[in-house]
């Protein structure tokens, strides 16, 4: 397995006048032995699944298995025209929550990069592509870009809530989506890198504190914030705003913050809002129901 940094990928792309997704496709094809067409076909299948989860989640209230959540994506979707945040952010955020709702109700999703953060990338990709009138092929390429950014984060830090907290899951998903949104919007590879860095810094330090250990509270709403932030980070990068700290250093810092977080704040349901009075009460109630 080859190790890369964002800087290497960005330089490779800019030297040849390519996109990050072009470089990622070439590298993946070389490493896996699959042709570029096969890789794109597999990613297109994943995008089909993502679109299905979005449409299920925004068209109905789906109660979660535990009954703690349900219908968040559906409700925000109906606010998209009149809401204060503007239609793009509201569409992306409600789609992100819709996918999380599907996940919590035992529906089918694509882990992107994890099940806990599965809404952010579909929400952002679908919404940005729709706004810019992008083709299916361009969206598939953008998903390849999310994947290479995620792979670099996995190799240089972590994508697991149990190791790095929510910043490793929703933070990474937001960074991955931000870079891909820049690519869709016609930005340069180096702008994509800045967008990823800006998004990751925005969520740095966020703890993983799921009530009763379930991927619901606060995970579903955090997916919507991750999506909104990815779009803002992409806009910043497109406006020429740069991350003062290079993206690879931001990724390493996220990993370090993850290691410094106490175990209570890494998916153990022992700290943060999971340890709040109501969080504990809900946990007890669910346990009783179980036994």
């Amino acid at each position: 397995m080859s190790l890369y940094t964002m800087r290497q990928i960005i330089e490779l792309a800019e030297e040849k006048g390519l996109k990050i997704s072009d470089v990622a496709l070439e590298l993946e094809s070389k490493e896996s032995g699959l042709s570029i067409d096969e890789i794109k076909k597999r990613m297109a299948y994943n995008y089909e699944i993502m679109k299905n989860s979005v449409s299920h989640g925004i068209s109905q209230v789906m109660p979660s298995v535990s009954g703690l959540t349900g219908g968040e994506g559906y409700r925000l979707w109906h606010e998209k025209e009149k809401g204060l945040s503007g239609e793009t952010i509201l569409k992306a955020s409600s789609r992100a929550m819709a996918v999380s709702n599907v996940n919590a109700s035992m529906g089918r999703i694509v882990a992107a990069p994890t099940a806990g953060s599965c809404g952010i990338i579909p929400g952002v990709m679908m919404t940005v592509a729709e706004k810019l009138g992008k083709s299916e092929d361009e969206i598939v390429n953008a998903l390849i870009t999310t994947a290479i950014v995620g792979k670099i984060i996995a190799q240089n830090a972590t994508l697991a809530g149990a190791e790095g907290g929510c910043q490793a899951e929703c933070g990474s998903a937001s960074a991955m989506a931000a870079a891909a949104a820049v690519e869709l919007a016609g930005g340069t590879p180096s702008q994509a890198g800045h967008a990823a860095a800006i998004a990751l810094k925005g969520i740095m330090g966020l703890v993983c504190d799921p009530v009763a250990g379930l991927v619901e509270v606060p995970c579903i709403k955090r997916n919507s914030f991750g999506a909104a932030q990815a779009i803002l980070a992409a806009d910043m990068a497109m406006a020429g705003i740069e991350s003062v700290i290079p993206v690879d250093e931001v990724i390493k810092a996220m990993g370090e913050v993850g290691r410094s977080l106490p175990v209570e704040l890494k998916e153990t349901a022992m700290g943060g809002i999971a340890a709040s009075k109501t969080g504990k009460m809900l946990e007890e109630k669910l346990m009783k129901k179980e036994n």
Binding site: M43, N46, S105, A111, A112, P113, A115, A147
Partner: peptide, 21 residues
């Protein structure tokens, strides 16, 4: 690790460890 370990797997939620695993 390939790109589909990052964007993937396709699975039934809610948890890769507690449901898919």
């Amino acid at each position: 690790m390939n790109l589909f370990d990052i964007i993937g797997p396709v699975m039934i939620g809610p948890s890769s460890s507690h449901t898919a695993g």
